[in-house]
C-alpha cells in the first residue's frame, strides 16, 4: 500500500520534474543568447537546423578520431553512443529520450569546452552552443 502511494506520488510529480528541467535548460539557452548578442548585437535566434548541421559536419581541425559529433554520439541523437577514444558508453544526447541533458550549466559548459576542442579544433561560439542545444531539445 505504501509502495503504491509512493509510486502514485512519483508519477504525480513527474510533470513537475520535466517542467523544472525545461526551466533550467531555458536558463542555459537564455545565457548563451545573451552571450551571442554580446559578441554580435544583431545575432539571430537559435536554429535547430544550424544545430543539426553543426552536429553532422565533418571537421578537420580537431582530433581525427572525433571528426564529427557523430563519431561518439552516432548519426542518431536518440541512440546511445560510445566514446571513440575510451569505449565508454554515452547516454543519448536527444532530450526526448534523456531529459537530464542540458540542465546543469557547469556540466554543459565543461562538455562544450572539451568536445568543441576535440571535434572542431576550436571553441564553439555561444550561437553554436545555443543552436546545438535547440536541435537536441527537439530530438
Amino acid at each position: 500500500m505504501i509502495r503504491r502511494l509512493m509510486l502514485a506520488a512519483v508519477v504525480a510529480a513527474l510533470p513537475l520534474v520535466v517542467i523544472a528541467a525545461d526551466a533550467r535548460r531555458d536558463a542555459i539557452l537564455a545565457d548563451y543568447a545573451a552571450k551571442a548578442r554580446a559578441v554580435d548585437p544583431g545575432a539571430t535566434a537559435f536554429s535547430a537546423q544550424r544545430g543539426e548541421t553543426l552536429f553532422r559536419t565533418k571537421w578537420t581541425g580537431g582530433d581525427p578520431r572525433t571528426a564529427s559529433c557523430t563519431a561518439c554520439h552516432t548519426a542518431d541523437p536518440r541512440a546511445p553512443g560510445q566514446n571513440a577514444k575510451t569505449g565508454r558508453p554515452i547516454e543519448p544526447v536527444a532530450v526526448s529520450v534523456n531529459p537530464k541533458r542540458f540542465t546543469d550549466p557547469a556540466t554543459v559548459e565543461k562538455q562544450f569546452t572539451r568536445d568543441c576542442k576535440n571535434v572542431l579544433g576550436r571553441e564553439c561560439t555561444p550561437l553554436e552552443k545555443g543552436d546545438y542545444i535547440t536541435f537536441m531539445a527537439g530530438q
Binding site: Q82, N83, A84, K85, T86, G87, R88
Partner: peptide, 11 residues
C-alpha cells in the same frame, strides 16, 4: 571494435 583501447576494462 568493442574494445577500442586497452584501458577499456569493461569490454
Amino acid at each position: 571494435p568493442k574494445v577500442v583501447t586497452k584501458s577499456n576494462c569493461l569490454a
